[in-house]
Write a protein that binds this DNA or RNA. Structure first.
Length: 195
DNA sequence: ACATGGATGCTT
DNA sequence: AGCATCCATGTC
């Protein structure tokens, strides 16, 4: 388990790269659900038009982003889906890393139960930001949860060697010049990417 | 390619 | 109160 503030208090681009290949574990109802992070995106805060904190916008929803790194930022998208971000950087620098896809490692049968849609291929458990939230049963109950404390949600190292590629971020057409910034990071060899 | 969905935030 | 938006997904 990774407990150090230094790890999470990096800028979002550095953290987004460092999270690739790490394991994320959710414990719920006595089950352990673990996936390897294979795809992330960095949201760089006040100067990033794709960020929920662009120009310092601060609401009840985005409040947690203004604190220290390592906390869960969970929000609802399109009224029905949940998305998981991990807060990056220091207090008053509101950046985050969006978790877009996982490779399921532990607890696949439980993930299948929690997933709202019947699936035929394993990769459809976690190859999208809201799919993985369903499979790991991540919702706004975890808003503000400290991943450095372990317990219900935490990050840990894996031994596997991975490579990292980058591309523009997905579904941020409203972001003008920031639309093309190469702030999506992924393991190009993974079969579990969202696109 | 298109329909779906409602919380959120911003404007009256 | 009303309204446009949205870091997706499922099904066509």
């Amino acid at each position: 388990m990774i407990t150090s503030e230094e790890f999470f208090n990096q800028d979002a681009i550095s953290l987004a790269k460092d999270l690739i290949g790490k394991h994320i574990t959710r414990t719920i109802d006595g089950h352990e659900l673990t996936g390897k992070i294979v795809e992330t995106e960095a949201y760089m805060g006040i100067d990033d038009r794709a960020s929920h904190t662009y120009r310092g916008k601060k609401t009840k929803r985005t409040e947690i982003l203004y604190g220290e790194g390592g906390f869960a930022y969970v929000y609802t998208i399109y009224g029905i889906y949940q998305c998981l971000n991990i807060v990056a950087n220091h207090e008053s620098i509101p950046q985050a890393v969006f978790i877009r896809a996982l490779e399921p490692i532990v607890g696949l049968e439980n993930m299948r139960e929690y997933r709202k849609t019947e699936i035929s291929k394993i990769k459809n458990l976690t190859n999208g930001p809201s799919k993985l939230c369903q499979s790991l049963r991540i919702d706004k109950q975890l808003y503000g949860y400290d991943l450095k404390n372990g317990g219900e949600l935490y990050i840990s190292n894996s031994n596997e060697k991975i490579s990292i590629a980058s591309s523009p971020r997905i579904n941020i057409d409203y972001s003008g010049p920031d639309k093309s910034k190469p702030w999506r990071f992924f393991d190009p060899k993974s079969d579990f990417l969202s696109k």
